[in-house]
């Protein structure tokens, strides 16, 4: 197997309510195939090489269970991945309402607001059963600081774009940092930017100190 530099292997986690089409989106991306039968996922992983902005990446994709009863696994999934794709179905209002809970869980485990998250609404081919409008999805994503797309796993609409955009989000989060972040949760940014506050206080302390001298 070709060996990749560390920063070119990206682990993604796909989460969402049960039955929204997480696996269908993943397999459509990996194999260009739509699975018509339903088979609930426990935990599946896939690998695929893809080209994004003239750069080759190896995607390590973790397809997860949507049922609440398997919540115990979520902490492990969240801690082992760098980027997240949250899926809801446009035909299910309740799966849309669940997006916020998934995002909150990610933020709590990683203790950071600065997590690369892509939110997608699936099953747009079933437009006559639509319960969530495009605008609603867009508004929620904007408020929560996530990227947003609507897709159809059946018609392969936007499927490629979702993964390409997720890779871009992950790289955009990584590059501005002065040091290469490790995968450990230790290096995650703190939830509150207290260093900024302390810095300001210290500045004033220093000035006073100098003037006394």
């Amino acid at each position: 197997m070709t060996s990749y530099k560390n920063n070119n292997v990206i682990s993604l986690c796909i989460m969402g309510d049960g039955g929204v089409g997480k696996t269908a989106v993943t397999i459509q991306f990996i194999s260009n195939h739509f699975v018509y039968y339903y088979d609930p996922t426990i935990e599946d992983s896939y690998r695929k090489q893809c080209l994004v902005d003239d750069q080759v990446y190896m995607l390590d994709i973790l397809d997860t269970a949507g049922q609440d009863e398997l919540t115990a696994m979520r902490d492990q999934w969240i801690r082992s991945c760098e980027g997240f794709i949250l899926v809801y179905s446009v035909t299910s209002r309740s799966s849309f309402d669940q997006i916020q809970f998934f995002r909150e869980q990610i933020i709590r485990v990683l203790d950071s607001d600065d997590v690369p998250i892509m939110m997608i609404g699936n099953k747009i081919d079933l437009d006559d059963e639509r319960q969530v409008t495009f605008q609603e999805g867009k508004d929620l994503a904007r408020c929560l600081g996530m990227s947003f797309m609507e897709v159809s796993a059946k018609n392969r609409t936007n499927v490629e774009e979702v993964f390409n955009e997720t890779v871009r989000i992950v790289k955009r989060k990584e590059d501005p940092q002065s040091h290469k972040p490790s995968k450990d949760s230790d290096s995650k940014k703190p939830l509150v930017n207290t260093s900024k506050i302390i810095k300001k206080i210290n500045t004033r302390v220093k000035q006073t100190k100098t003037s006394i001298c």
Binding site: S195, V205, K206
Partner: peptide, 23 residues
């Protein structure tokens, strides 16, 4: 530990933005 600066600022009349956060 939070309030002791590592180095004095260059001038008493200027605020320095290059401050080490914690010492």
């Amino acid at each position: 530990s939070g309030f002791i600066p590592s180095t004095p600022p260059p001038s008493s009349h200027q605020k320095s933005n290059d401050t080490t956060a914690t010492t």
